[in-house]
Write a protein that binds this DNA or RNA. Sequence first.
DNA 1: ATTATTTTTTAAAATAAAGTAAAAAACTGA
DNA 2: TCAGTTTTTTACTTTATTTTAAAAAATAAT
Lengths: 227, 227
Amino acid sequence: MVNILFVDDDIAITDSFSAYLKSESFYVTVVNDGVSVIEMFKKKEFDLIILDIMLPGKTGIEICKEIRDISDIPIIMLTAKTEEIDKIVGLEIGADDYVSKPFSPRELIARIKALLRRASKFNEEKSIYVFGDIEMNLKQYSVKKNRRTLSLTKSEFAILHKLIENPDQVVTREKLMKVITGFDKYIFDRTIDTHIKNLRKKIEDNPKKPVIIKTVRGVGYRLNKKI
Amino acid sequence: MVNILFVDDDIAITDSFSAYLKSESFYVTVVNDGVSVIEMFKKKEFDLIILDIMLPGKTGIEICKEIRDISDIPIIMLTAKTEEIDKIVGLEIGADDYVSKPFSPRELIARIKALLRRASKFNEEKSIYVFGDIEMNLKQYSVKKNRRTLSLTKSEFAILHKLIENPDQVVTREKLMKVITGFDKYIFDRTIDTHIKNLRKKIEDNPKKPVIIKTVRGVGYRLNKKI
DNA sequence: ATTATTTTTTAAAATAAAGTAAAAAACTGA
DNA sequence: TCAGTTTTTTACTTTATTTTAAAAAATAAT
């Protein structure tokens, strides 16, 4: 369940919009003044904050700064004024989005969803990687090239997985060894090379001139996204 | 360096705003029609996309969906009318932010920064050195000049790394030797000279008249910040 | 301007790293 | 167990990089 902290001194707004939020099946906690926001923020666990700029006691800008010092929670700022200077200040102090009043409930909902989606993207683990015409599905334990399923061995799969989750970065043979053996067990230098050779034979158009798995001499191997 | 793909069919807008983006030291790639966006997206590596909804060939909504199938890159949609935002939302196409035209450049910049900040939180920190048109990425183990990847050898990379992390300071041959051999193994003085020569051939516009790696006679080499 | 010193360039030799094929070893599942 | 598959090792080839050496060029000093 998504838990939203809604801070605005205008009770008409908090009432109507929190009803709207609830109808979209969000949990809502309303705070109508500036001073008790931080306190409330610390008390419960929230997924997102909607913060009016004009508040009695403490401004939304101050509150935003204070929260940013202790948390990365998504923050949407609300303001009655349409002057862009407010927007910029709001965004520059670390808010994630800005909506001017009067706002359309649907737009605010949309922005909430977009922000939550982005924030949670990075929490859940990725299970599908696409890399050029290569598609790797961890859940299915499958790799496709141009929609055709390839049959990779366990080690080949593990190596490709390691490379594809670190695109554009060199992965040393040591790290690749760890990935296939599970531990720092010593295996010969050419072991990884041989796996790479077999992997290239399966995924490269021309294994003699590999374009997907590049060798970085003296360092390791790298999956090159783009030039 | 942040790399932005800007898609809009209105050349007046792409021209003026991409100039604005460049002044904020973003890299910008402009595409003026809908059909070649995906192609471009696959070709280079971008950090964020600004996508107009009304495009000839293919709508921004279609493009957004297609990109979402293969990537989590932050997307900002541009709409001519505010009502269109509802449409985007209703379709839940996966954009991260929405800005309606005409937009204020400062606001769009602010939104770009807010989105990048949130997106990059979750990417690992980058160890990147920028020096004029040279960009060195330690994690990727790559060096770019004017955004083209150069292929440096291990020693060349080590030398450039040492120089770039001590800009405006003379680095002796001895220290450079240590950097490439790991230890105080004795190698010829001329070895470093040769590496420097090869390095200059790769990174200098005119290797005969080096402006990046300067010789300090009798002492060593220096990376000059000022010309 | 001449000489001594240092750096750059060139090219060849030495070394190091990566690629390959084939055989041995280790698994796996009927 | 044993046949098939995968992984690891070995020995060898190929390729790339580093080092050396020596000549040419550039710089500094007298």
